[in-house]
């Protein structure tokens, strides 16, 4: 994928450790201009560290990051003008109004008064918060705050937008809105987007996916490539009793115990399913067959499940009026 584009990102052999513990190890990544790339991995995989490095908040131990023609280590200020970021934790001033937050952001990016006015109005409209421009941010719902953060990150018209878990903790409507804004921006502004997430359902629409686990890239490709390369159907079953479980584990050495107490077995070719059902079919409490998805890709690659919290579970009052 080595694109020599103006606003793409090239990461070469990036490594970083905190207090002797390796957080990122030999990461090579490429994000073409105007594309949308997802970093998929469980919590603690090193995604946020990678984001911090890309935003020039953290200097990596080794490796190189190029944004277009610019080397992040040599020209951090030039790079900063080109990037916008939405962090996992909210970072708005909740005691200021929406407009004031945007105006502040415009000021620290050196925009003139006229530019600030114009941009603030544009981005507020984009995230459908123009009616709330003078409201104090404290009164906003979680979804509104996140939308305002996206608006803020766009104030200075970055060509690359980093979003670290942009939809975590939001209700389904807010999540859908956010994805639609981002899709629109890709189409209209050719905005390059790098998104981290641990929700597998959310990465299907991205151009390219990097799967990261324990600080290493373990696979990459388009969603389709990943599924056809690593995706397998999987039997998930719950044995009736301990003897069955032992027997099952002995018969299928590659079987793995899953977080929910069930057992996952990769479904092989041929008459494997017949053989399995013939032998164990009557001794199972539950059985389910998963079609290839990015979740099974992750499971197949790591032997572990990616964080499977229901993404739609609302944490706070969903407040999109």
């Amino acid at each position: 994928m080595g694109t020599e584009s103006a606003n793409g990102i090239e990461i070469t052999n990036l490594s970083h450790a905190f207090a002797g513990r390796t957080v990122l190890s030999n990461i090579d990544m490429s994000v073409p201009d105007g594309s949308s790339v997802a970093l998929l991995g469980p919590n603690g995989a090193g995604k946020t560290t990678l984001m911090n490095i890309l935003c020039a908040l953290l200097t990596p131990d080794s490796g190189r990051v190029m944004l277009g023609e610019m080397d992040l280590a040599r020209q951090p200020d030039a790079v900063r003008r080109k990037i916008g970021a939405v962090f996992q934790d909210p970072s708005l001033d909740t005691r200021l109004s929406a407009w004031e937050n945007l105006d502040f952001h415009g000021l620290i990016y050196g925009l003139s008064r006229r530019e600030r006015k114009r941009r603030a109005a544009e981005v507020l409209e984009l995230v459908e918060l123009d009616a709330w421009r003078d409201e104090i941010v404290r009164t906003f719902s979680g979804g509104m705050k996140r939308r305002l953060e996206i608006a803020r990150a766009l104030m200075h018209q970055p060509s690359i937008l980093f979003l670290d878990e942009p939809t975590t903790g939001l209700d389904p409507q807010s999540r859908a809105r956010i994805w639609s804004y981002l899709e629109g921006l890709r189409a209209s502004d050719n905005l390059t987007q790098v998104i981290t997430t641990h929700y597998v359902e959310e990465v299907e629409d991205h151009d390219y996916i990097y799967i990261i686990d324990q600080g290493r890239l373990i696979a990459s490709g388009t969603p389709h490539e990943l599924k056809s390369r690593h995706g397998t159907s999987m039997i998930r079953c719950l044995p009736r009793d301990a003897t069955t479980e032992e027997e099952l584990m002995a018969a299928y050495p590659e079987a793995m115990p899953l977080a929910d107490g069930r057992i996952g077995i990769t479904l092989g070719a041929g008459d494997m399913l017949d053989a399995f059902l013939g032998r164990f079919g009557a001794r199972l409490r539950q059985i389910q067959i998963d079609e290839p998805s990015l979740a099974t890709v992750f499971l197949a690659l790591t032997g572990r499940e990616i964080d499977q919290r229901t993404p739609g579970a609302p944490k706070k009052a969903a407040g999109v009026q």
């Binding site: 935003c55 020039a56 908040l57 200020d77 900063r80 003008r81 990037i83 970021a85 962090f87 934790d89 909210p90 970072s91 708005l92 001033d93 909740t94 952001h105 620290i108 990016y109 050196g110 803020r152």
Partner: peptide, 14 residues
């Protein structure tokens, strides 16, 4: 604590 500093730190302001 509320992450606001990060938003300033990624800006080009020295």
């Amino acid at each position: 604590e509320f992450g606001f500093l990060r938003a300033i730190l990624i800006s080009p302001v020295p």
